[in-house]
């Protein structure tokens, strides 16, 4: 099984070594794309329709914005959060601890850091898919206005990166699937409820508002909502920086913890 080695070896450059991990997950996903899309996107779609029509009839408008516009732009962000969080906890944990897929990858030139980055990038990509699907439905319902909406798509990708990195920290600490319930209950669900997805942050007590601004989902909504509904976001750089910073800090914490865990 000898082989002229030069034809077979082309080690990916350091900065691109996460790509084969991302490509592996894409390859698996593309086999099951339809059920997976329905899974990622079915639930937010039901919320959008039920709350949009049901609650929308009661609420009417928020400020000068129809409730369906308000809700669609919120769910655009929450679906990015939910998708990335699920992928980087339950699915990534399966590949790490159950299938031992990571164990196989790190006997090649790739290392734990490459695997973590690849997984986070992949979870962010899935966020992009599901948020884009929501955007298309919102557009079909007439809840999108103006050409800025296209700029919401990279916001979904950045949000996905941020939430996937945070979820990866949880995965690094998890000893079983049960552990993820804590994160869902103490992290993901509170963000879903207080970060302005379903109703404006201004409705809540001052303390809760302060807390909400300390959470990344609020900044994701602050960017995507105006873009989708036809306005330019205020303080866009600040919101982008918050999402990027949360993501980068969480990513380096996750990578450090996972390196310690897997390369002990």
């Amino acid at each position: 099984m000898a082989e002229s080695t030069t034809t077979l070896r082309r080690i990916p450059h350091r900065t691109a070594r996460w790509l084969p991990v991302w490509r592996r997950n894409l390859r698996v996903w593309s086999k099951l794309a339809l059920p997976s899309l329905i899974g990622n996107f079915g639930e937010p779609l039901l919320y959008l329709l039920a709350l949009g029509y049901g609650l929308g009839a009661l609420v009417g408008r928020i400020g000068d914005m129809p409730y369906m516009f308000f809700l669609a732009s919120g769910i655009f962000c929450s679906s990015a959060m939910m998708t990335a969080s699920f992928e980087a906890t339950y699915s990534a944990y399966s590949r790490m601890a159950v299938q031992k897929t990571w164990e196989a990858i790190v006997t090649t030139p790739l290392d734990v850091f490459d695997v973590v980055v690849g997984e986070v990038m992949w979870a962010a990509t899935k966020s992009l898919f599901s948020a884009s699907a929501i955007l298309i439905v919102a557009w079909a319902l007439g809840a999108v206005s103006g050409g800025y909406a296209v700029l919401a798509v990279p916001v979904a990708l950045l949000s996905g990166f941020c939430f996937a990195s945070m979820a990866m920290v949880v995965t690094a600490l998890a000893r079983s699937y049960d552990f993820f319930l804590y994160y869902t209950t103490l992290g993901v669900t509170p963000m879903l409820l207080i970060c302005g997805v379903f109703f404006p942050i201004g409705q809540m007590p001052a303390g809760v508002q302060t807390l909400a601004w300390a959470l990344p989902l609020t900044h994701s909504v602050a960017l995507a909502r105006p873009l989708i509904t036809g306005a330019a976001p205020e303080n866009a750089l600040l919101h982008l920086a918050v999402l990027a910073l949360f993501g980068l800090v969480a990513l380096s914490v996750a990578a450090t913890l996972l390196k310690r865990r897997l390369d002990a």
Partner: peptide, 30 residues
């Protein structure tokens, strides 16, 4: 990049066929 490793416990990729397992693993070597 220049060695091959056969682990004590198989960690083949259950999401893939035999052929896809080899292609995917080759991808990790670029």
């Amino acid at each position: 990049a220049r060695i091959g490793v056969v682990p004590q416990l198989d960690n083949l990729d259950p999401d893939f066929t035999v052929n896809e397992n080899l292609r995917t693993y080759a991808g990790y070597f670029g």
